[in-house]
Design a protein around this nucleic acid. Structure first.
Length: 100
DNA sequence: TCTTTACTCAAGG
DNA sequence: CCTTGAGTAAAGA
């Protein structure tokens, strides 16, 4: 049986354009679920990191959340793509939030 | 079945 | 801005 949830989470991340981010909430909704935690858990397992831009996923409240490579790395990557971060939080999430 | 989890929402300080 | 408490669904043992 394919673990749809994990797989679909990664697939969704793959379609996020550069300079944009998404929230665990949006992903869960896109999968017709409310498992925000399950979404994050799926990526935390290091199945991607180089396969999928998991650094483009943040919390719905704008917080960066976490990153297997280090939160600082994640922030750096986001800022490099044109997403300003302040105190580990996205300054203008709605401006960079990509919805499916 | 139980535990852990890169979460979310709401309320209070 | 930060903390606490409650709720939630999926993977792993």
């Amino acid at each position: 049986m394919l673990k749809k949830f994990e797989v679909q989470c990664l697939e969704l991340l793959g379609q996020i354009p550069k300079g944009k981010v998404t929230t665990y909430r949006e992903i869960a909704k896109a999968l017709d679920s409310q498992a925000y935690r399950a979404v994050g858990r799926a990526m935390a397992r290091n199945r991607d990191l180089v396969v999928v831009p998991c650094h483009r996923v943040v919390c719905s409240n704008g917080k960066v959340g976490g990153y297997a490579n280090g939160i600082d790395q994640k922030i750096k990557l986001l800022e490099r793509e044109g997403i300003p971060i302040s105190r580990e939080k996205v300054v203008d999430l709605k401006s960079v939030l990509y919805r499916f």
